[in-house]
Design a protein around this nucleic acid. Structure first.
Lengths: 153, 153
DNA sequence: GTATTTTAAGATAAAAGGGTCTCATAAACT
DNA sequence: AGTTTATGAGACCCTTTTATCTTAAAATAC
């Protein structure tokens, strides 16, 4: 799998938040229900994103989670790096430690090229962009149902 | 991780075989020593590749494993598909089942493009090509040491 | 035919990732 | 102040992957 499950859940949750109003704090329980993710597991993932300054939380009644920056200011790469780290974008395709320009494996050059295209895609795509697309075409963010079902409270 | 460890080991082993003389059967024990892979684990992986018709084995004294086809006739994709399956090249970046043209997620289009570039790289690269490069530049196939150390018996 | 060298196949064990549960802490409302 | 609603942090279990160990089977050489 390219991205870990934690990372995928983090992306889905971030997209969900970006699709809601900016200032609104959304309870994790609500998010876990809507996105069909285990509450406690999602909590852990959101904690990571909060620690990285991508999200912010508010305790107490009417508390919850929201984006710290605007959705257009959060690239997919930010979330991937926060959860999975840079491994995917730096590691050797043959799993050799320290494979780089100075000590490469036979596949290094070709793989570096491919890897860069992944990097570029993640770096140039922001949350708002995907939310717009999702809303316009009613694309799904969960196993079944469209984008709209996320919002009928 | 992009490729499973089994798959990475399978690739390294296949490159090793492609670098040796075509007709020669190489004992698994020798390969596991040279490539620093657990003997029994490597055995299992090679069995998969043998079952897929990429390698062939010969039992008894002077037996071992060799490529069934020529190295230039084996693409990296063949090995990846044999061990990891098509998952990497078909799955949704957001982990949604059945994400495709008819029921996509917001990231589908962008990811499909990136995924295709991985597919293309694996499909257009063959073993002999990498062996040539490895020999010419003495690139490593193991944690330390160059290409040449694989061949002093 | 028997010993030897090899692959083949299965059970088993260790490690990592994914997921759940419980308790503690913080903040807001009454 | 106390209750409620929420996050935060930890221990814990389950499943998959990775790795090891043991035994069986095949084929060659003698």
């Amino acid at each position: 799998m390219l991205l870990s499950k934690s990372c995928v859940y983090g992306l889905r949750a971030s997209l969900y938040l970006a699709a809601r109003e900016q200032g609104e704090f959304v309870p994790i329980r609500k998010m876990s229900d809507k996105l069909e993710i285990s509450f406690h597991f999602l909590t852990k993932i959101l904690q990571q994103l909060t620690a990285e300054g991508i999200l912010e939380s508010f305790k107490g009644p009417n508390g919850g989670i929201r984006l710290k920056r605007t959705g257009s200011d959060v690239q997919l790469l930010d979330i991937v790096l926060a959860i999975d780290g840079s491994q995917l974008l730096t590691e050797c395709a043959l799993g050799l430690p320290g494979c780089g320009l100075k000590n490469p494996c036979p596949l290094h050059d070709k793989w570096a090229e491919t890897r860069d295209s992944i990097h570029e895609m993640l770096e140039k795509t922001n949350l708002t962009e995907l939310v717009h697309k999702g809303k316009a075409e009613n694309l799904r963010l969960t196993t079944e149902g469209g984008f709209d079902i996320l919002f009928d409270d």
